[in-house]
């Protein structure tokens, strides 16, 4: 079993994080929460088609990294990627518009929920084939290393990914090449419908494998924005210092099913209840209040983010469907799709 560090949230408002950063974490948590709820509502109105994977309950992971990363860092995430795209600074209208298949979508309606990308914000893509983006993230890290920038690639994935080959290939090569990359496993206990523990040889699917690649096993409370932020800050600093990759396992829980099609009925009621009691939003609100942040400040941020989601919803609804001309656009770098002369 590999060595293990557990990062705990420390208390006290004048600690290493500080109020301004905490308010940033609070804001990002709320943005994700309200946007994902809105996405769910829009499903019910049949305005969002296809499949969608929500991060309700997992906001703290996205927020912790979103706040800790530098603007020019790169993030790579999975099909459960609305949150990770949003926290990098992509517009809510762009996210909702893409989910709704509108022209204003981040991808102009060509990618959909599972492929949100905003290169200008360093959100380098949502990858919908399990494991694929870990090797891609190390490529970005290699590029930063090669060009001598101190950018870091951060790669988010689920617990299920730890059992696919690409996970192991990427971790091995990242270590061998000492690449500036942070691997973040969001362990929400279920790969899709099956509990990860039933199909994995070790208890902690990511952290317990870290040792195989010469890395410390890091487990963090994925429902605590502060804990995630601290782990992120440390791993990013290590990567930037040229000391190679990190693998962080964030324990968390999704409030809804795996995807739109999944009501999540396979999970025991007690388990769900226990995790709902650890909902990161009320927990973090309580901590901030404990630290003396005024309720009005928190509520104002809440109101602002709700208003922003409302405005984005209206904007996305008002956006036209994509022009059919885009079908044969952007296969190639010349903007076209021609395969013959």
């Amino acid at each position: 079993m590999s060595p293990r560090t557990k990062t705990k949230a420390t208390s006290g408002r004048n600690d290493d994080i500080g109020e301004a950063t905490r308010l940033g974490l609070w804001r990002q948590c709320l943005e994700v929460r309200h946007l994902e709820k809105r996405a769910y509502d829009l499903f019910l109105q049949n305005l969002i088609k296809g499949t969608s994977h929500l991060s309700l309950g997992q906001e703290a992971v996205a927020a912790g990294f979103g706040v800790a990363m530098r603007k020019d860092d790169w993030s790579f995430c999975t099909y459960r990627g609305h949150a990770h795209t949003l926290v990098r600074g992509a517009s809510m209208t762009g996210v909702l518009g893409e989910l709704m298949g509108r022209e204003c979508g981040l991808l102009g309606g060509k990618g959909g929920s599972m492929h949100l990308t905003s290169v200008e914000h360093g959100a380098m893509g949502s990858y919908a084939i399990i494991g694929a983006h870990l090797p891609i993230a190390i490529g970005a890290a290699w590029s930063a290393q090669y060009r001598g920038t101190d950018q870091v690639a951060v790669c988010f994935f689920g617990d299920g990914t730890t059992n696919i080959g690409a996970f192991h290939e990427a971790l091995n090569m990242a270590t061998v090449w000492t690449l500036p990359v942070v691997f973040v496993c969001e362990n929400n206990l279920y790969m899709e419908y099956t509990p990860i523990g039933e199909v994995t040889a070790v208890e902690h699917p990511a952290a317990d494998r870290a040792g195989a690649y010469g890395l410390p096993g890091i487990i963090v409370d994925g429902n605590d924005p502060d804990a995630v932020f601290r782990a992120a800050r440390e791993a990013l600093a290590k990567a930037r210092a040229g000391e190679g990759p990190s693998l962080i396992e964030a324990k968390t829980y999704r409030h809804s099913g795996h995807s739109r099609a999944d009501p999540g009925k396979y999970r025991p009621d007690e388990e769900v209840k226990a995790w709902l009691a650890r909902d990161p939003i009320p927990m973090y609100r309580k901590r901030l209040l404990d630290f003396g942040v005024k309720e009005a400040v928190l509520d104002a941020i809440d109101a602002e983010t709700r208003a922003a989601v409302d405005a984005a919803t209206e904007a996305a609804k008002a956006s036209p469907e994509p022009a059919l001309a885009v079908i044969e656009r952007d296969v190639w770098a010349d903007g076209g799709a021609s395969w013959r002369n």
Partner: peptide, 28 residues
């Protein structure tokens, strides 16, 4: 060795790395 690199037997890592490098400014 910075520009010409041996890799492990990891075809996904090889092509993934090439893709990640290409999308961030290299021509692998």
């Amino acid at each position: 060795p910075r520009r010409v690199r041996d890799t492990p037997i990891s075809e996904q890592a090889i092509l993934g790395a090439a893709m990640g490098a290409a999308m961030t400014g290299l021509r692998p």
